[in-house]
Measured scan of single mutants.
Amino acid sequence: AIERGSKVKILRKESYWYGDVGTVASIDKSGIIYPVIVRFNKVNYNGFSGSAGGLNTNNFAEHELEVV
């Protein structure tokens, strides 16, 4: 089962992080479509409006993740 702290591989082909491994930061139990927040070591794009980097978290559905 996917739980907080799990290392997961991203299976969503259109994702910037496809094939990468991230760490589960949290799981939303409220029934939303993409409840699993995954944190990565790298950012997906340069930040804007003065922020240092881009996003390094993204929401995924459990079926888009594979525990490694």
Rank of each mutant, 00 (worst) to 15 (best):
E64V: 03
I33E: 13
V24L: 02
V8N: 01
G50N: 09
G31T: 09
N59R: 11
Y45F: 12
R12D: 03
S51M: 11
K29I: 08
S15N: 04
L11G: 02
D20R: 14
N56D: 11
E3L: 13
T23I: 13
I27F: 08
G31F: 12
S15E: 01
S15F: 03
D20N: 10
N44Q: 14
I37M: 14
V67L: 12
N58G: 15
G50I: 07
N56I: 09
S15Q: 01
I2E: 01
N58E: 15
I33C: 14
E64P: 01
G47C: 15
N44M: 14
Y18G: 00
Y18V: 03
G53Y: 06
N44L: 14
G22K: 01
I10S: 02
Y18E: 02
I2G: 02
L11I: 04
G53C: 15
R12S: 03
G22M: 05
G47V: 05
L55F: 12
L55A: 10
K13H: 06
Y18P: 00
E64Q: 02
A1C: 14
S26C: 15
R39K: 11
K13V: 13
G5Y: 05
W17Y: 05
A61V: 03
K9C: 14
V38L: 01
V67N: 05
A52Q: 12
I10D: 01
T57P: 04
S6C: 14
K7Y: 13
N59V: 06
Y34E: 05
S6W: 13
A1G: 11
I27E: 02
A25W: 13
V38N: 00
K29W: 10
G50P: 11
G47A: 07
G22A: 03
S51I: 11
V8Q: 01
Y45P: 15
S51L: 10
K9S: 03
E3H: 13
H63I: 07
G47E: 14
N58Q: 15
I33S: 13
Y18N: 02
K13W: 10
V21Q: 03
V68S: 03
H63P: 04
G53I: 11
I37H: 07
R39C: 15
S49G: 11
G47N: 08
E3K: 13
R4V: 14
G22P: 01
Y16R: 04
T23K: 04
P35Q: 13
G54S: 09
I33V: 11
S6K: 07
F60P: 01
I10Q: 01
N46Y: 07
E3P: 06
I27Q: 01
S49M: 13
V43Y: 15
E14N: 12
V21W: 06
Y18R: 01
K7T: 08
V68A: 04
L11V: 03
G54M: 07
R4N: 07
S49H: 08
N56Q: 09
S6P: 04
G31Q: 13
K7V: 10
N44I: 13
I2F: 07
A52E: 13
G54F: 10
S49L: 11
I10T: 02
G31A: 11
V24F: 03
L55G: 09
L55H: 09
S30W: 05
G47L: 04
N58F: 12
L55V: 14
N41V: 11
N44T: 06
D28E: 09
S6I: 09
T23R: 04
R4S: 08
V67I: 11
D28P: 03
A52P: 11
A61I: 02
G47S: 10
Y34K: 06
Y45M: 15
K7L: 14
A25Q: 14
A61Q: 06
L65C: 04
L55R: 08
L65H: 01
R12M: 04
R4K: 12
K29P: 09
G47Y: 06
H63T: 08
G50R: 02
A25C: 15
I37T: 14
N56T: 12
S26D: 13
K13Q: 10
T57Y: 14
V36Y: 15
N59I: 05
D20Q: 08
V68Q: 07
L55C: 15
K29A: 08
S51H: 09
W17E: 00
N41P: 07
E3Y: 13
W17A: 02
N58A: 15
V43Q: 07
V43A: 07
K9M: 08
V36W: 04
N59T: 09
S26H: 13
S6E: 03
G5C: 14
W17Q: 01
N56M: 09
P35L: 14
I32M: 12
V43N: 10
N58K: 05
F60Y: 06
Y45I: 15
T23Q: 05
L65P: 01
A61W: 06
V24I: 04
V8H: 01
G47Q: 08
F48V: 14
V8I: 01
G22N: 01
Y45W: 08
V24G: 00
V68E: 04
N59P: 08
N41Q: 13
A25I: 15
G31R: 06
G47P: 13
R12P: 01
V24D: 00
V67Y: 04
L65Y: 01
T57A: 07
R4P: 14
S49T: 12
G53D: 13
A1T: 12
V38E: 00
F60Q: 00
V36T: 00
S51G: 12
D28A: 08
D20H: 12
S6Y: 13
I32Q: 12
S30H: 06
N56W: 12
R4Q: 11
G19L: 13
S49E: 15
D20A: 12
N44R: 10
G54R: 05
K42V: 07
V67S: 04
Y18M: 02
G50L: 06
I10P: 01
F48W: 07
D28Q: 06
A61C: 08
K13A: 08
F40K: 00
K42E: 07
A1W: 11
I10V: 12
E62N: 07
Y45A: 15
I32Y: 08
